[in-house]
Write a protein that binds this DNA or RNA. Structure first.
Lengths: 339, 339
DNA sequence: TTGTATGCGTTATCAC
DNA sequence: GTGATAACGCATACAA
């Protein structure tokens, strides 16, 4: 069976190529008869227009780039990205867009940069973290390709973004510990220079303050979201802070490392120490003990980001929107009343 | 700065478009002088050929499709996919190929199928699991687009594949338990109908036999790789099998569920019970206790798959290769001598 | 409502 | 070694 193109279809349907084109693109001004002739040929031969040619003609590719930074195996391996990406992918494909997932780190060769975000190919870009945002914006400096952020960066108010309400989530998590009677509550956070961290810290601090507890500097750690950091920080705190009875971890991976450090030091959770995480990763349910955590709608974040981007692609003048998703506290077995 | 195309570059370099094209594609028959004139214009204006147009002309898109099945949150969220994909991505991008990661499940609407694997767009496809292979092969039935499998399917000997040596890995893991003095060793496995499972089971059984231990049917469970299954199976075994002192789990996620069930039943690992996993996921290091496991080179699997595919794309007649990667036993804290 | 002609930006073929 | 010119397959402005 020969590969067909628009001309052959036109010939088979006894019309001109433009009629075929109009039918396929749902344009008006085509008689019912012509339309049905074309359609039956299309059906019979299962004709699909060549999208490369279509892209060349319309200069829109129906491809969306997703760009993520890399922060070592641990952060890649926690399951967050996959879920986020799945949300993006499914929403895109439902709307007829393909997705190209790329990873970026600043050590990559310049030539690869060009390859990753080749603007000729992309109708839009979703940035999965702030590190990547700078690079993306730079690359597309004077092109008007729509960009959407997962997370939020106050430096770029004109870029649509999707994020969980970090303040609210951290507040809920910390307040949960407070309600259980804890007073000496540590806080572990991720990257220093991100607004996300700032918001989570504020939520943590406000929950303490509102309960009449003064946040202490040496009960707070800022570093990365890795299990490794969670482990080392907790290890240190165990030695230094006798009074501490609970900790709020700004990620489930931090909590995972924390749980291990506690285990290694024979401190039982939740009898002697309470831990609450952040993310609601699929694996958090199987930590030992199962982790109490504030879940963010990870899949939903991806889905929403894709929605905003596609909206922006279809209407470049669409109002800039910053979506804020609601977190949800999942109480499991890693927290208990202070005894 | 105006967007340039090959003609404008040609004009600026005082040559014809053909010369520009030859220079950019490293074709012979172009004088040193012309070449350098072209190059300096290219550099100065940072000209990049439009790859959509190039694709139309060459009918090769430099895009590779990666297709994965979906088996619920848990399996998606364990970090295996991300690492595998990273291996694929980095190898591809080094060779100038873009990657499109798609998920597939059989419940998806037909129209979406077409979208996911639109053959006009892809120079090759990597299938991440067997479920997806059937679908892919069907889609590309009478096109000769190269396909590579991660994993191995004996039904398609003509399709290149990459896999870890499943037999060897399972043997090593089980033998490790045997060496520690264990005799009553359970075995938990994934999907029944996959060759992978068969090989892992044989490795497990042979390790037992070679130590003079007879494998028992009711010490063997087959189901899925999920934490959930690991948990439930172990729970059941705790009730039924008093003698069992160790278990080989054919995935780290199964092991994770197993550890939780053990914990919930106050059976301490490794003092009373030993557990060994399979995969060497990044998170396995932070399980409680840190998991002894046979690691497979996940990133390397992806990288190798991409290598094989690109080789096949560049030379359709390349010999079909089935790569088998070596596993490595990582002894951590979840296994100990039988006391 | 339909058809014709032109352009999208390359690569490739063939004269020169 | 170089430069016209014809594809590649589609969309679209314009003429009919």
């Amino acid at each position: 069976m020969e590969k067909l193109n628009i001309d052959k279809v036109a010939k088979l349907a006894h019309v001109s190529r433009s009629v075929v084109s109009r039918v396929l693109n749902n344009h008006p001004n085509v008689s019912d008869e012509a339309r049905s002739r074309v359609m039956s040929v299309v059906e019979e031969y299962n004709y699909r227009p060549n999208s490369v040619a279509r892209s060349l003609a319309t200069s829109s590719t129906y491809q969306i780039g997703v760009l993520s930074g890399i922060f070592g195996e641990e952060s890649l391996g926690n399951g967050y990205w996959t879920l986020l990406y799945l949300g993006i992918f499914e929403e895109c494909i439902r709307n007829g867009y393909y997705v190209r997932l790329s990873f970026y780190n600043s050590e990559m060769k310049k030539e690869l940069h060009d390859l990753i975000l080749n603007e000729h190919h992309l109708d839009g870009v979703i940035c999965l973290n702030e590190e990547v945002t700078e690079f993306t914006l730079q690359t597309f400096e004077d092109s008007d390709i729509p960009i959407v952020l997962v997370g939020h960066n106050p430096k770029y108010p004109e870029i649509p973004s999707v994020d969980v309400d970090n303040y609210d989530a951290a507040y809920k998590a910390t307040d949960h510990l407070v309600q259980l009677g804890h007073k000496d509550i540590g806080g572990m956070f991720g990257d220093q220079n991100v607004q996300e961290t700032e918001h989570r810290m504020r939520g943590y601090q406000d929950a303490l303050c509102n309960a009449g507890i003064e946040p202490k500097d040496d009960y707070t750690a800022v570093g990365s979201y890795s299990q490794h950091d969670g482990h080392d920080t907790m290890e240190e705190w165990i030695k230094k802070h006798d009074d501490m009875t609970a900790v709020f971890c700004a990620s489930d991976t931090l909590a995972m490392g924390t749980l291990l450090a506690l285990f290694e030091n024979d401190i039982s959770v939740p009898e002697q120490f309470s831990v609450v995480g952040f993310d609601g990763l699929p694996i958090s349910k199987y930590m030992i003990p199962p982790l109490t955590t504030v879940a963010q709608p990870t899949y939903g974040k991806g889905e929403k980001a894709a929605k905003l981007l596609i909206e922006k692609i279809k209407n470049k003048d669409a109002r800039v929107r910053h979506a804020s998703l609601k977190p949800e506290l999942l109480v499991r077995k890693s927290t208990a009343k202070l005894s």
